[in-house]
Amino acid sequence: MNIIKAINLVHEFIKRDEENNVVGITKALDNVDIEIKEGDFVAVLGHNGSGKSTFAKHINALLSPTSGTLIVDGKDVLQASNRLDIRKKAGMVFQNPDNQIIASIVEEDVGFGPENLGIPTDEIWERVDRSLKTVGMTEYRKHSPNKLSGGQKQRVAIAGVVAMEPKCIILDEPTAMLDPNGRKEVIEAITELNKKKNITVILITHYMEEVVNADYVYVMEKGKVIMKGVPREIFSQVETLKKHRLDVPQITLLAHELKQSGLNIPDGILTREELIDALLKASQG
């Protein structure tokens, strides 16, 4: 079953002068068709300005489409009466955790969302316990978020969304401000949420290594979906990705260059283990 379905989705940003005359229109989403199944881990890739973050904000009803259709868990985003429900079903994690963390103690911050939903106090603390455990932050529950690393702060922000028990979490470049260790922590936490809790994850990113384990990938450019498929299909097309100024995971690029130099190895190698296995087979063959 699809939890997200976008059909011919268009979003235009209209620029006006001081007298409110239209002086320019930017089409940030240009007839986008995207389907996301419940329980899937889907990555949306693209450069800055590709439309991927604009799409993310539509799922959470932070933006409304100019035209087209967007259904989130059976509800039409264009109907204003659906928006509160949609925000309960689709939680959002942003690039900078400091913009999302508001309390001075970790556990209070995680409990803030459920409290706003009117959840009874006993259940709030149960949700806080579960959410902190899910992202591996239980031992920091009494800490000040200001004393945490970037990766830890982002995990607290994710816990705050998880505590609201959404069916879907949209992460808009959640690792952009983190070092490699912080990025790894966050990706592990959201992969765990997806696999163990069956929460649908939509990861907006431009780090190719982060999407290797995704169920499906959409690539956007200038407001359009230009490629879609499972990671192996996408990363098998190294030259096409290069043409669109997009990277591929380093292992995939190394395997591609080895193949071009004459080694008999398959396209779309995604992990070090796969490359080692392919090299062993090539040496035996």
Rank of each mutant, 00 (worst) to 15 (best):
A255Q: 08
K5Y: 12
K52F: 00
D122S: 12
H206W: 07
K167M: 00
L254E: 13
R232P: 12
A159I: 05
G39P: 14
K228I: 00
K195A: 11
L270S: 07
A28D: 01
K37A: 04
F13C: 02
N194V: 09
P65F: 06
S67F: 14
V72Q: 00
E126N: 12
V42G: 01
I190P: 01
G229P: 04
V22F: 01
P180C: 11
D30P: 04
V10S: 01
H143V: 08
E188D: 02
Y207T: 01
E18G: 01
A176T: 11
A282N: 08
M1C: 08
I102Q: 08
K153V: 13
G111C: 02
E12Y: 03
V32W: 00
K142I: 07
G49R: 03
V128D: 05
E35F: 07
R272G: 12
L193P: 04
E257I: 09
T69D: 03
E107H: 10
I59W: 02
A6E: 01
Y218K: 11
K37H: 15
K167E: 15
I169F: 02
E19S: 07
N116Q: 15
V238F: 09
K27I: 14
V72G: 03
L132Q: 06
D277M: 02
W125F: 04
S283M: 15
A90I: 01
P249M: 08
E185W: 12
I199H: 01
I105Y: 14
G151Y: 09
G223H: 01
G91Q: 00
N82I: 02
A56P: 15
V72F: 06
G91S: 05
M92I: 07
G268E: 01
T138L: 15
Q100L: 03
R83M: 14
T191K: 14
V135M: 05
L171Q: 07
E12C: 07
G223N: 02
A282T: 06
K133E: 15
V128Y: 00
L246C: 08
Q152R: 04
G111N: 01
L254N: 13
V238G: 07
V201D: 04
